[in-house]
Design a binder for these strands. Structure first.
Lengths: 333, 333
DNA sequence: ATGAAAGCGCTAACAT
DNA sequence: ATGTTAGCGCTTTCAT
């Protein structure tokens, strides 16, 4: 049997209410009493039971984090930002991988709510109506991190993904390219579908360039799919001279596949990647990238969630963080 | 106010005990009753309160995971293994980053135990006596994942790190090298100190090679420190012709720094790395590595923990998983 | 400043 | 097969 507040109360000759006050830093305790109680706590090695506390107070100081895959470098950085801010505000995190699976996501939401989390940070590559309905029904606040949801019914933190692509394509155009390819994520990825693709088409149009079906390759963001993408692109009659890739890992695949084929980067092919994970520095030439502040997206999401949990007013619940182009060796600058 | 078991009981004209039985799949319920109760549960959208359940049953189906840094590729893979098996056994995970900080680790253990986790998976680069004492005092089982603790007082899952180095050095020796360098982690890293270093020295001795102070470089496992390590090594009068690196990320730094200096790999310099994270495939030439089954270490740790939590007998609580050498482009095979 | 007592929502005997 | 009841270890009024 563990030491309870009751044991402490008895040993210290006070009521459990007083022990509770001491433990919770309630000022209405005589210093002498406080001291005595603290001594007993120390001596007995009393450790408050957070579950009992949670039941009585209806607060668990725990937030749920639903993430597609923690072993992905991209999401791991987001998660780190989330966790750091959570810790700062004395929250713990229940972390679960969804593998971007629709049903798992829905199920995890239920599990988290069942565990009485005080809030949820939700990451997904594709939010459906069903998700939104579920999330809106949540008795505790939910924040989407790096996850788009057009209707803006759920608070979220993102960058302007569309503008990011447009910046990259504009850069390519400025460098005189007319054959600009796009290596994206899968069509199931909402950001790909709703932001990247439209941004790409729009900027081509703006530049007076025609859209070429062949210049768009869908990947699963992986290194291997990047390798494969380059090989498709390189085999084209009119091989593209610039590629925007929406994941660093795939970009590494592209760089290496180009290397294997003797295609010189950036002389014969310029590459701009997205994300700017540490991976972008772990390749030669180093990747020019759109800087997505992943850690910050996580951190700001969690910060926003703390405000929501605290019922503070938030001026804007759809936060757009700034992005920028970081030019390194994979482009001619 | 949320729907409680009591609301369901009233609506279904049964006692709360029956509702509890239905929810928990207790067979002692008439099918008709079960059906009725389930309908009410569905209609009311009843969701059991895990906190109340935890208080009453003294089980939270939650385990604590203390990890140095989830954004490190190495640990993220371990974490994924842990989480997958946890999910398989219906546990959730409270995940916290310790930054390998001694006090934070100790504090996190307390926090987790306060939250009444049913068990803990602990990862650390350096376990002290104090850790062991704390961990032994834990009322719930603890398993160390990828974390060495000589006294074997705490169950753990690892590979034979010493033998791994020795295998690598033996391979180098077989390839005719006599100038074999070691790029390790920091001296604060227990595996470095107690396994890697002794393994390195021992295999040199075995091979009749003398130990050269200059051939050992400590890093913080990072890419940049790998770059720096190579530059130190390359500047030596007797430049080493083979390097064993105990982290993939640092190994990439080494490969690229060598490339920048025009040192040909594997012709002029052979490199074997550790870990075998996906990083090892994201570089040219691809890294030959000691395969550390990171995901499996995590998975087996969690599996072991479930047995311990379940009070099952475990034959061996210090599990050593097999490792092997995977030879790729960074060595002459 | 301190204590008494009523829950929080559930599980787990124990009855029936 | 179902109901009754006593906790689980706290927080939180409400008294004093």
């Amino acid at each position: 049997m563990n030491i309870t507040i009751y044991d402490v109360a008895r040993e210290a000759n006070v009521s459990m209410a007083t022990v509770s006050r001491v433990v919770n830093g309630n000022p209405n305790v005589k210093p002498a009493t406080r001291k005595k109680v603290n001594e007993v706590i120390e001596r007995l090695g009393y450790r408050p039971n957070a579950v009992a506390r949670g039941l009585a107070s209806k607060k668990t100081t725990t937030v749920g984090v639903i993430i597609p895959d923690i072993s992905s470098i991209f999401y791991a950085e987001l998660a780190r930002g989330i966790e750091d801010i959570a810790t700062m505000y004395k929250y713990n995190i229940i972390l679960s991988n969804s593998d971007a699976n629709h049903d798992k996501e829905l199920h995890l939401i239920q599990t988290m709510l069942g565990k009485q989390v005080d809030g949820v940070v939700f990451m997904s590559s594709n939010i459906t109506e069903e998700h939104i309905e579920e999330l809106k029904k949540s008795p505790v606040p939910v924040v989407l991190a790096g996850t788009v949801e057009d209707t803006e019914q759920i608070p979220s933190v993102n960058i302007d993904y569309k503008q990011a692509v447009m910046d990259a394509v504009a850069f390519f155009e400025g460098n005189g390219h007319s054959r600009i390819a796009l290596v994206t994520g899968p069509a199931t990825d909402a950001i790909t579908r709703k932001n990247i693709m439209p941004g790409y088409r729009e900027s081509l149009e703006k530049a007076g360039l025609s859209f070429e079906e062949d210049y768009v390759i869908e990947t699963d963001f992986s290194y291997d799919s990047g390798v494969e993408a380059l090989s498709q692109l390189a085999d084209l009659d009119k091989r593209p001279t610039a590629i925007y890739v929406s994941s660093d890992e795939a970009a590494l695949g592209i760089i290496h596949a180009a290397y294997d084929r003797g295609i010189k980067i950036p002389e014969e092919l310029e590459v701009i990647s997205s994300d700017n994970t540490r991976l972008s520095l772990m390749v030669r030439p180093r990747l020019s990238t759109v800087v997505q502040p992943l850690y910050d997206i996580g951190a700001v999401s969690m910060r926003l969630l703390t405000k929501l949990m605290n019922k503070e007013e938030v001026e804007e619940s759809s936060v757009i963080l700034p992005h920028r182009l970081e030019l390194r060796g994979s482009t001619r600058n």
